[in-house]
């Protein structure tokens, strides 16, 4: 993997609304042409972060750089970005066909044939007021805009709301196929982690406005294990290791342990009568986001 200049670089980014910190001291850098998942619970600060990456909102302190430049009022930078916002508003009386007609005026790589094909796949009605479309149809319109724009940085904020399982699969397949043909940087916020985890190359996890995790997706897989057995045995096995989560049932306990287990660990666990199971991607994120030690010490942090 060659190390290139990051396409997205965020340094110590903070956004406060009055006394509520939506985002606190977030720093990370993303390499170009990867699919990155932005994960976290509702109110974790995902949308706030995306708005600041696209110049729609302004940092209270810190910086966000896209292609090395400040995106705010930066036309040359912004035209390389397509941000599909979950709550995108459309003017009264605009039909989907109006929206799609306007897109090529602002997205240089717009592929109209691809957009038409997606309209067919999603069965999107073109001649109806966007405001009268169902939630899922509006999401489909956003997905079509994001994919057909082929913007070098494409940002999807919870793009699947209201989409049924079939339509979501159409989205994931189209995203993957088009990304394979036209590699570009894709930032995808979601809480349907299991559905997209295999598509991701990199993962950012936000919780209560702070960045919990900034990691390669593959290195995350298998980086935690669930160990179950008699509570005493489990706890002595877990001693000295980073425990993300602990459940008990009578005299039995299950702990989620962070860190890859060695074959020796496996043998020791088996010898102690413990069972080891892999922890799914989604479960790992959930455990990280609910881990008590991860709670920020500042009590004033609140949800949006």
């Amino acid at each position: 993997m060659t190390s290139q200049n990051p396409v997205i670089q965020v340094d110590d980014l903070t956004r406060s609304y009055r006394d509520v910190a939506a985002l606190q001291n977030v720093s990370f850098a993303l390499q170009p042409d990867i699919i990155c998942g932005l994960l976290g619970r509702n109110g974790a600060g995902k949308t706030t972060l995306m708005r600041m990456l696209t110049g729609q909102d302004f940092p209270s302190s810190g910086t966000a750089r896209m292609f090395g430049e400040n995106p705010v009022e930066n036309s040359a930078v912004l035209q390389q970005i397509c941000f599909v916002s979950e709550g995108q508003r459309y003017p009264d009386g605009y039909h989907a066909r109006h929206v799609l007609a306007g897109a090529p005026w602002f997205f240089a790589n717009w592929d109209a044939a691809f957009a038409d094909a997606l309209v067919d796949k999603f069965r999107l009605p073109l001649k109806r007021d966007v405001k009268k479309l169902s939630r899922g149809q509006q999401s489909a319109l956003g997905v079509i805009l994001g994919l057909a724009s082929r913007a070098p940085i494409t940002i999807f904020d919870e793009p699947y709301l209201g989409l049924d399982a079939v339509a979501r699969q159409i989205f994931y397949d189209a995203l993957l196929a088009d990304y394979a043909e036209n590699p570009r940087t894709i930032l995808l916020s979601t809480h349907l982690i299991d559905e997209v985890s295999n598509l991701l190359e990199h993962v950012l996890v936000l919780d209560e406005g702070r960045l919990l995790l900034d990691q390669d997706a593959e290195s995350l897989r298998g980086s935690a294990s669930a160990v179950a057995g008699r509570a005493g045995d489990v706890d002595s096995f877990a001693e000295g290791r980073r425990v993300l989560h602990r459940d008990t049932l009578g005299g039995l306990a299950t702990v989620t342990i962070s860190g890859r287990l060695t074959p020796a660990d496996h043998r020791a666990a088996t010898a102690a009568g413990l069972e080891i199971a892999p922890v799914s991607f989604q479960q790992l994120i959930v455990d990280l986001s609910t881990h008590p030690d991860r709670r920020p010490a500042v009590a004033s942090v609140a949800y949006e």
Binding site: Y172, D173, L176
Partner: peptide, 17 residues
Amino acid sequence: TNEFALYYRINPATAGK
């Protein structure tokens, strides 16, 4: 690599790896 990625519905970089 891309065919693997699309068939298994995984990231092409992962398939390439």
